[in-house]
Simulated scan of single mutants.
Amino acid sequence: MPLIEVTLAEGREPERLRALMHQVHAAVRDTLGVPDASIRVIVREVPATHWSAGDVTLAERAAERSATVGEAADA
């Protein structure tokens, strides 16, 4: 029984998450040849303030990008 876990930063529309689950499910089914009922897909959404890379949270990185874009627009 395959169990696939996908972790993403939160903020995507439910329809996009559902499409992701469908495509992951189909890829596992087609690749492994297992019955649909045996496949489990879990999508975990993590707040951007709880995910960091290089000691910078995703929220901090987004704020930095917004500030940079704002500065460019002011120039």
Rank of each mutant, 00 (worst) to 15 (best):
M1Q: 01
P2E: 06
L3K: 02
L3V: 14
I4K: 03
E5L: 05
E5I: 08
E5C: 04
E5W: 03
V6G: 02
V6H: 01
T7P: 00
L8E: 03
A9R: 13
A9M: 11
G11H: 07
R12N: 00
R12C: 06
E13C: 03
E13N: 08
E13L: 06
P14R: 01
P14H: 00
P14M: 06
E15K: 07
E15S: 13
R16C: 03
R16V: 04
L17H: 01
L17N: 04
L17R: 07
L17I: 14
R18E: 15
R18V: 04
A19F: 02
L20H: 06
H22G: 02
Q23M: 05
Q23I: 02
V24F: 05
V24Y: 05
V24K: 07
H25K: 08
A26K: 10
A26D: 11
A26Y: 01
A27T: 15
V28Q: 09
V28L: 14
V28R: 06
R29Y: 04
R29P: 05
D30L: 13
T31C: 14
L32A: 13
L32T: 03
G33Y: 11
V34C: 14
V34S: 09
D36I: 05
A37G: 13
A37I: 12
A37Q: 08
A37K: 13
S38T: 11
S38K: 10
S38D: 14
I39Y: 09
I39N: 09
I39G: 11
R40V: 11
R40C: 04
V41E: 00
V41G: 00
V41Y: 01
I42P: 00
I42Y: 00
V43S: 05
V43Y: 03
R44H: 12
E45G: 06
V46D: 02
V46Q: 13
V46Y: 08
A48E: 12
A48I: 04
T49A: 14
H50T: 01
H50S: 06
H50Q: 11
H50W: 08
H50R: 09
W51A: 08
W51N: 03
W51Q: 10
W51S: 07
A53K: 09
A53V: 15
A53P: 00
D55W: 08
D55K: 10
V56E: 15
V56L: 14
V56C: 11
V56Q: 15
T57E: 10
L58R: 09
L58C: 01
L58N: 07
L58I: 11
A59Y: 05
A59C: 04
A62S: 14
A62H: 10
A62N: 12
A63G: 06
E64T: 08
E64A: 14
E64V: 02
R65N: 06
S66E: 15
S66I: 02
S66L: 15
S66C: 05
A67F: 07
A67P: 09
A67S: 11
T68G: 04
T68N: 10
T68K: 15
V69S: 13
V69W: 14
V69K: 14
G70C: 03
G70W: 04
A73G: 00
A73T: 01
D74G: 14
